[in-house]
Design a binder for these strands. Structure first.
Lengths: 282, 282
DNA sequence: CGAGAATAATGAAAATTTATTTCATAATTA
DNA sequence: TAATTATGAAATAAATTTTCATTATTCTCG
């Protein structure tokens, strides 16, 4: 809880001298965070030890620690929350809301991700003979992005956003292949079938989806991206961004696992693009 | 400015020892606010005066004052900084860093976005006869995503990630058409040419790119997405996520501008997907 | 109700911890 | 090689905390 609120709440439980300190603090907390214990004691007309005891009473380690808490209370702006866009929002307002919701979702997704599972997924990916990324609709975008990333690693990698191609590809998969199936809902029938087919053909199936969904049940490894999707406007928004961040994580894990030499290779890929660009003047 | 961001920003201007402190602070700011100057110095393997000088360099009065700022930064909603992934990071560490960097980039992108420009872009989009999204590589993913979004609006919309198709499409554009060109660098020659072609053929060109680049100069409207891209691993990461968030903003602006009736239409599109999904049990 | 014992609150001064300054030395740059 | 800058050991200064004696408050019991 905010320490200022706490002080206000417990005002009655304080002793006479303590209340004096409390009042000084409440009346100008901004000044107090820059004051020494001596200065505060003087302003409240009480002794330094009393201030110290006051701080301890509020479950802080002492005066400096108390000031830290106070500083945090003062700074406590609104953290990112999923704020819904409103009919009459101005451009500025809905822009802010969307960015904040997105950040809130990322925060949430991160919390729900299990580092061990990521580790296993990276393990599997680094050892794959071939990697396939499948998604439909908004998740196709994520698969597309994954292709872009993993393509640079000089590993056989494919991406399909066409149900038939996905099925054929899944049926042709074999031991050593890894199939990454992406779906926010985890309920898209054809994708669940593709996952099943791939697994039946000995591929390792990694699902980027919501936990305990039909798709999740078909996967060998489930990277669960749980975000509260704002479906107000009937469009997937945050979920795909969290999925993309996860792709970044996997790609990063991949490069780290592959070691330094491998990263030189990435630089080569990057340099190869140079001639297609206008030179930077600086 | 947030003192954590400040540290991250000025990392290059620090001396060797100062950088050591900076790294310790960035890696666990939460611990530092409870540490004495001696403890921090020891952890960073440098002397106490160096820590003190480090604090002063960041425009604080000294170590205690620095801790106050740090505490405020931590409480300040954005503990997110662009932290670089390190060779020996565990899965947990690099996952956290990537999510945090992404959030930091979103924060930055939001700050740099101009609501007026967004408003104009939405204006133009709502009045378009046809909308085209062009991008290459990582930006193709963003264009792809834009297609997914705008397609739902029942507006003629196309997306190409093929240079030739982009050129042909640009040449065939006419008054009333809107072409959205996406490129983080803003220096990809063929895309700049496409923008020029589209403009010459009376289309309105919206650029989602970095300010004052060759591409930006060719556009009628520039939505500048300035994010500090971490090119350590030679892969575009944050930039495309910020671009996607911007697409969300544009799509949202679009739906808001079109009014209530229009949103019923969106619901229809969404409902049409239902039969392709497994039912939810709850 | 009130004397006095018990308890709690308080502050002066000492002790301790923490931060800063000074200054000599080491590292870096010109 | 000189000049500059960065760094840390030690000394100093500042601040916080502890100790302990004193004062205020509360409680008990005649």
């Amino acid at each position: 809880m905010n320490i200022l609120e706490k002080i206000a709440n417990e005002l009655d439980t304080f002793s006479k001298s303590e209340r004096k300190v409390a009042e000084v603090i409440l009346s100008s907390p901004g000044t107090v965070i820059h004051a020494s214990i001596a200065a505060l004691a003087k302003q409240a007309n009480i002794s330094e030890p009393t201030v110290n005891r006051f701080c301890r009473r509020l479950d802080t380690k002492g005066y400096p620690d108390f000031k830290l808490h106070l500083a945090q209370s003062l700074a406590n702006g609104t953290p990112y929350v999923n704020r819904h866009v409103d009919e009459n929002d101005t451009a500025e307002e809905y822009t802010d809301k969307i960015f904040e919701s997105t950040m809130a979702s990322l925060e949430l997704a991160r919390k729900n991700l299990d580092a061990n599972v990521i580790n296993r997924a990276v393990d599997v990916l680094t050892q794959a003979n071939k990697i396939s990324f499948f998604g439909l609709g908004a998740s196709a975008v994520v698969a597309h992005d994954a292709l872009n990333k993993f393509f640079r690693f000089n590993v056989p990698v494919v991406y399909f956003d066409d149900i038939l191609m996905q099925r054929m590809s899944a049926i042709n998969s074999r031991q050593g292949d890894v199939v990454v199936v992406i779906s926010h809902t985890g309920r898209t029938k054809s994708l669940v079938e593709v996952a099943t087919l791939a697994k039946e053909n000995d591929a390792i199936v990694i699902g980027i989806t919501t936990d305990s969904t039909p798709l999740a049940k078909e996967c060998n490894i489930v990277l669960s991206v749980d975000v509260a999707e704002d479906t107000d406007l009937y469009m997937p928004m945050s979920s795909r961004i969290a999925q993309l961040a996860l792709i970044d994580v996997l790609a990063t894990g991949f490069t780290l696992r592959r070691g330094t030499k491998f990263r030189d290779n990435l630089k080569k890929v990057k340099d190869s693009l140079r001639s297609s660009r206008f030179e930077r003047k600086d």
